[in-house]
């Protein structure tokens, strides 16, 4: 039972990192990306590739994954500089589809549909995180660092410029803000940290395949941010906790066939998204922000 809870808590931490980074570009930069799972996947594949061929050192995997994800994020930043709103969503959706094809076809690196098996556990300075409890600690510390760092950026002058661009791009431009640079940097930051979650995921599960990085995953991450409350500090974390625990909770419903749990889960959060948009577009944590 303890092992089960530790496993859930670790996954919650990893998903929360994803939701926080997605919220950073969605909530503060106004970039509604449906391609977040791509960068999660890049992080995971880079970590797995390095771990299987060269080293299990986390200190090497992390910078490599962040750098590669950050460079590829240019593919997302480019349309974000040209169009906004629905157009960008469409572009990111297309990017997600393309990336999923690459993940499943580039067999020499990603192992194709079968994925990569037997990824060794991560280690820092020779200490391997084989104990699940220790790994939970690692994931928890990472989450805490990401939340602190992201909040600090949001409250810095960079964060204020970002919100200014979200609310009115031309006004920000008129005030002398370098809109293109600020947008590109924010996408770079979001995707690089997203790749960190991917590294943790690959090292934790020791098995990855394309199924975790498809459009369904991107939708799930977006749902976490929206259900929790977009543009808030705690919203994405609350959303990540709720939506990660949902499938676990559904397994306790005896009348549900196990093969249908995935679908039922997606139906529930799809419905939650619709209902929230009709009755409470700010998300669950949105109201608190309004009171403040």
């Amino acid at each position: 039972m303890i092992a089960y809870l530790v496993n859930l808590a670790t996954l919650v931490c990893i998903n929360a990192v994803l939701a926080v980074t997605l919220n950073f570009i969605m909530g503060y930069a106004g970039i509604f990306s449906l391609a977040h799972a791509v960068f999660f996947g890049i992080g995971a594949y880079v970590a797995a590739f390095i771990a299987l061929r060269w080293t299990d050192s986390l200190l090497l995997q992390l910078p490599a994954a962040m750098l590669i994800a950050g460079v590829i994020s240019a593919a997302l930043a480019l349309p974000a500089l040209r169009v906004r709103g629905d157009y960008f969503v469409a572009a990111s959706l297309g990017f997600q589809v393309l990336a999923a094809t690459v993940f499943s076809e580039w067999k020499s690196v990603t192992g194709g549909i079968g994925g990569l098996v037997g990824i060794p556990p991560a280690s820092i300075a020779g200490h391997a995180f084989t104990d699940p409890l220790q790994f939970l600690g690692l994931a928890g510390v990472t989450l805490a660092l990401v939340v602190v760092l992201t909040t600090a950026i949001v409250h810095s002058s960079f964060g204020r410029s970002l919100k200014a661009i979200r609310d009115s791009e031309s006004a920000a431009l008129a005030f002398g803000k370098n809109v293109a640079l600020i947008k590109t940097l924010s996408v770079f930051y979001s995707t690089a940290i997203c790749a960190v979650a991917g590294v943790l995921y690959a090292d934790y599960l020791s098995f990855i395949n394309v199924e975790s990085f498809t459009i369904d995953a991107s939708t799930l991450f977006m749902a976490m941010v929206i259900v929790g409350g977009i543009g808030t500090v705690w919203g994405p974390i609350v959303g990540a906790v709720l939506l990660t625990l949902l499938p676990a909770a559904l397994t306790y419903l005896p009348f549900l066939p196990r093969t249908e749990i995935g679908s039922v889960q997606q139906m529930i959060y799809g419905l939650a998204m619709v209902m929230l948009m009709i009755f409470k577009p700010d998300g669950l944590m949105g109201a608190k922000q309004r009171e403040a």
Binding site: F32, G85, M267, Y269, G270, V274, L276, M277, I278
Partner: peptide, 22 residues
């Protein structure tokens, strides 16, 4: 706003896809 409509619409698409799958 574009965003609320998009999310609502997208949520409907997710529900229908899974309903059909089930």
């Amino acid at each position: 706003s574009f965003f609320t409509i998009f999310v609502g619409s997208f949520g409907v698409a997710v529900v229908i896809q899974n309903l059909i799958g089930t």
